[in-house]
């Protein structure tokens, strides 16, 4: 990857005064940036689920990463079973697989909220977190029993292998798809929350449940909406990441889930634009760390960021209001 091409961006050229090794460096940097934005987009989608649930319920839904993991597996299963037999074009297969996964995971999200969180809504916050961890362990083990403990791989034919070289930087169709789809989803979500009455009701519920009730807002219904949107976005992220890295495992809910959680904290938990910014930023930091320091240590960078954030700036970049809420 990242071969030296002749068309390196002119800005890069002037900054490096035309020396060849410098051009290579610039190309590597841009390529890591694209890689970072791609995984960052996935983190953002997953981080939105953490942040919305936290915003409305003050609950850190540790099972959220597992919704993402199950979404990835469901997309995989749809592709290798039903869809492999069909005559649909690839893009249609991918759409159907994603759609089925989203619907199933959104239903699961609503079900989990009803069974594991609603009965605990009036108990202490720690109790609900323990319940969330329990759900997470349950879902992981269920996935292991269904799909096995070994890695599964999205079939090679399911991934559109198209890529371009732009100014010495390799960009694949999958990367553009991930960034494009994530951007569209995030902008739509933002518009929904900021511009519609139901969106205002979600924001009001996040501020004050009782007063929201006095307005005639059914708080249970708002929470159901949150548990459709969050896990639904998580399922899309799961399918996209499966297609990108090809390999999936029943533990990716924890590894990617924790990274997305870090992204949510980085942006300021409870804050929707914060989750978007935090995810992108974390993806870029991770990939630059992998590219320039050591790929083997990239997870260490991410969790170092989490630890430093929790110590020095637990409200994140955009989350000034959290301290007063808690």
């Amino acid at each position: 990857m990242g071969g030296v091409r002749t068309g390196v961006a002119s800005a890069a050229e002037s900054a490096c005064a035309g020396r060849l090794p410098c051009r290579v460096e610039m190309a590597i940097f841009l390529e890591q940036l694209v890689n970072g934005l791609t995984v960052g987009a996935v983190y953002s989608l997953v981080a939105l689920g953490y942040t919305m649930v936290y915003g409305v319920m003050r609950l850190i839904n540790f099972a959220h990463g597992d919704f993402f993991m199950l979404g990835s597996y469901l997309g995989y299963t749809m592709l290798v079973t039903v869809l492999a037999q069909s005559n649909l074009p690839l893009w249609a297969m991918l759409c159907v697989a994603t759609l089925v996964s989203v619907v199933a995971i959104a239903c699961l999200g609503v079900f989990v909220e009803r069974m594991a969180y609603r009965p605990l809504r009036k108990s202490s916050r720690l109790t609900a977190v323990v319940s969330a961890i329990g759900v997470s362990i349950f879902l992981q083990n269920a996935a292991m029993l269904i799909w096995g403990a070994r890695y599964q791989a999205y079939p090679p034919w399911s991934v559109p292998e198209v890529s371009w070289t732009l100014g010495g930087v390799n960009v694949s169709l999958m990367q553009l798809l991930i960034m494009g789809i994530s951007l569209v989803l995030m902008v739509s979500l933002y518009m929904f929350v900021q511009r519609t009455t139901v969106g205002a009701a979600i924001r009001a519920t996040a501020i004050d449940h009782d007063t929201a009730r006095l307005m005639g807002i059914d708080v249970d219904q708002i929470i159901r909406i949150i548990f459709v949107i969050g896990p639904g976005l998580g399922a899309i992220a799961g399918v996209l990441l499966g297609l990108y890295y090809r390999q999936i495992h029943f533990t990716v809910g924890w590894s990617y889930g924790l990274k997305a959680f870090t992204a949510a904290i980085l942006g300021g938990i409870g804050n929707i634009p914060g989750a978007m910014v935090g995810g992108m930023l974390l993806g870029i930091l991770e990939m630059l760390g992998a590219g320039y320091i050591s790929a083997a240590w990239k997870d260490v960078f991410v969790f170092l960021i989490l630890i430093l954030l929790l110590i020095f700036r637990p409200t994140g970049i955009l989350g000034e209001r959290v301290a007063e809420k808690v």
């Binding site: 205002a200 009001a204 501020i207 009782d210 005639g216 059914d218 209001r321």
Partner: peptide, 28 residues
């Protein structure tokens, strides 16, 4: 009757301490 339905029956409650939604606009 649940609180969110009581408004629809015709009772509005202006709570103690005003409890406006502080990060929403006046119009919202």
């Amino acid at each position: 009757t649940p609180a969110h339905e009581i408004v629809n029956r015709g009772i509005a409650h202006v709570p103690e301490g005003r409890r406006v939604f502080s990060t929403l606009t006046v119009e919202e």
